Simulated assay, not measured.
Amino acid sequence: MNKLKIAIQKSGRLNEDSIGILKSCGIYIDNGIDQLKASATNFPIDVLYLRNSDIPQYLEDGVVDIAIVGENLLIEKDKNVEIVEHLGFSKCRLSLAVPKEVEYTGPQFLQGKKIATSYPNTLTQYLKKNNVEAEIHVISGSVEIAPNIGLADVICDLVSSGSTLFKNGLKEVEEILSSDACLVKSVLLSPEKQELLDILLFRLRSVMRAKSSKYVLMNVPNDKIQEVSDLLPVLKSPTVMPLAIEGWSSLHSVIDEKKFWEVIDKLKEAGAEGILIIPIEKMVL
């Protein structure tokens, strides 16, 4: 029986989010403590827990079929792999940072400077694009300490909340790229395994669609149903159900949550009352 081999980061936030989204897709991984390979109990997939930086090479070589990795890593490693879906979690950005007392004046500030980073290839491309020559120091971890020990004038590192920079007396001055987690596949994937991937993608997209949507219910006077319906940012026409109170109906629909908040005041002005917003676990179209 064919099985997909998926690589995920063996520890850290990306690991937790990756396992979480698989679980949301109804895929449960039977793994023990410190186990580097595990199987799903109800889907033909094996999970390999690998060092993050090694995953793109495993994909290119076809050792694993698919993986969940940050787009920033794919850009840095520049391997022959294919992004299948942006997953929207583990968002971060690769940015330049300098000591907070330093006045940053733009990319030309970097000319002749020493820059510490774990992303030398991405940084090199950025410097080349801006016609800047700088001295790159490659560090595998704790990049933010480099200016404090005199190793570098500037750092180029991943930033999420910015709290680590702040704690080390640094400030973010330039964003080089933004990134989120991606589902990536090997270009060597067989047709049989592509069929399994298509099933997984169907589940993933249903979960992701549900996260950005909400089920909404509201009570509306019958003579205001059309006006309220026209205001709703819905997928299709809403469901209308009569209430026990004469002249009123309950209006049900699925909405984009972000767009809903743009029209909430207009809905109330149009006569909608008792508005309920309910999370959706899965949404299959």
Score class of each variant (00 low, 15 high):
V98F: 00
V98C: 02
K100T: 12
E101T: 10
Y104N: 04
T105A: 08
Q108F: 12
Q108G: 11
F109Y: 11
L110H: 00
Q111H: 08
G112Q: 08
G112S: 07
K114T: 03
N121T: 12
T122K: 01
T122I: 09
L123F: 03
L123H: 02
T124P: 04
T124D: 13
Q125W: 13
Y126I: 01
Y126A: 02
N130H: 15
V132I: 10
A134N: 03
A134K: 00
A134G: 05
E135N: 15
E135V: 09
E135F: 12
I136W: 05
I139Q: 09
G141I: 10
E144W: 07
I145W: 08
A146F: 01
I149D: 08
I149V: 11
G150L: 05
G150C: 06
A152V: 01
A152D: 01
D153T: 00
V154M: 00
I155F: 03
I155G: 00
D157K: 11
L158P: 02
V159I: 12
S161C: 11
S161H: 10
G162Q: 03
S163P: 04
L165N: 06
L165Y: 07
F166I: 13
K167R: 14
K167W: 11
K167C: 14
K167A: 15
N168I: 09
N168S: 12
L170Q: 01
E175T: 14
I176R: 00
L177R: 04
S178D: 06
S178P: 05
S179P: 11
D180T: 08
D180F: 10
D180H: 10
A181N: 04
C182E: 01
L183C: 06
K185Q: 12
S186M: 05
S186E: 06
V187E: 14
V187S: 15
L189Y: 05
S190N: 08
S190Q: 08
P191V: 11
K193S: 09
K193M: 09
Q194K: 13
E195Q: 15
L196S: 06
I199C: 14
